[in-house]
Write a protein that binds this DNA or RNA. Sequence first.
DNA 1: CCCTAATTTGCGAATGATTTGCAAAATCAT
DNA 2: ATGATTTTGCAAATCATTCGCAAATTAGGG
Lengths: 127, 127
Amino acid sequence: MRTTYATKPREQVSAVLRREKRYLSAAEIHAILRKSRTNVSLSTVYRTLDLLAGKGEASARVDERGETTFVVCDQSHHHHAVCNTCGKVEDVSCEAIETVAHALRSHHGFKLADHEMEFFGTCGACR
Amino acid sequence: MRTTYATKPREQVSAVLRREKRYLSAAEIHAILRKSRTNVSLSTVYRTLDLLAGKGEASARVDERGETTFVVCDQSHHHHAVCNTCGKVEDVSCEAIETVAHALRSHHGFKLADHEMEFFGTCGACR
DNA sequence: CCCTAATTTGCGAATGATTTGCAAAATCAT
DNA sequence: ATGATTTTGCAAATCATTCGCAAATTAGGG
Ligand SMILES: [Zn+2]
Ligand SMILES: [Zn+2]
Ligand SMILES: [Zn+2]
Ligand SMILES: [Zn+2]
């Protein structure tokens, strides 16, 4: 039978993501856990991140250095506004896509199936 | 003095991108060149791609396998519509962002500075 | 509780894409 | 052509991520 265990290491990785609310790499999460004397192996961090991403509880993004980073994430369709200063990520609802879909179809003959969107700027707290 | 030479290998890598008009990894470009008996080392393909991306003549994207891929690209701000069937990439002008910027500011207190957007679907030729 | 089966962990080794160092080859301005 | 400068190719080094496997944990009865 294929069940998934709720283990301590998994909860600890997940807790870091929920607390930080910003994109973190496996190595960063591993370092954060270490600092609080919580020993979770890097492999387990990687495996847990894959798990969370698979369940849609986290979403991934490759940063400029080529490292894959993760952030806790709403299950429903939405996009991310990332603060350039503090790194915090806010969920943003997806509107205006209907308009774009229509323009794509009529101007390019392109039938839109999916899309990705991400915003960068300065969040309210950092201004 | 810091000049850039227009060399044969660079032109050959660039030509592949201009001809294919789809996202290609360094390895794929290397393979395509090989097939046409054009010998350019993989290192040079990598270095040329970095160069093109730096000049804004190509834009990069990490595919689902984690490989960085490149496509020839207009210098001006725009987005990409990628065909799920043939892979061809079309440049799409950026509209509707004014609306989004305004909503981000009023609903989230977020000051938009930059954004990324990418579309996936079926192009006119593939329907 | 205690036991067993199923799943997960941690470690170190393997992988695979990208980078780097350096001598030889190519390019460019004179 | 000539010499200074930049680029190339190759092999070795990096570095994030994945894997294999024995030991440790978890879930669920009995
Ligand atoms: Zn902020
Ligand atoms: Zn959307
Ligand atoms: Zn197509
Ligand atoms: Zn835009």
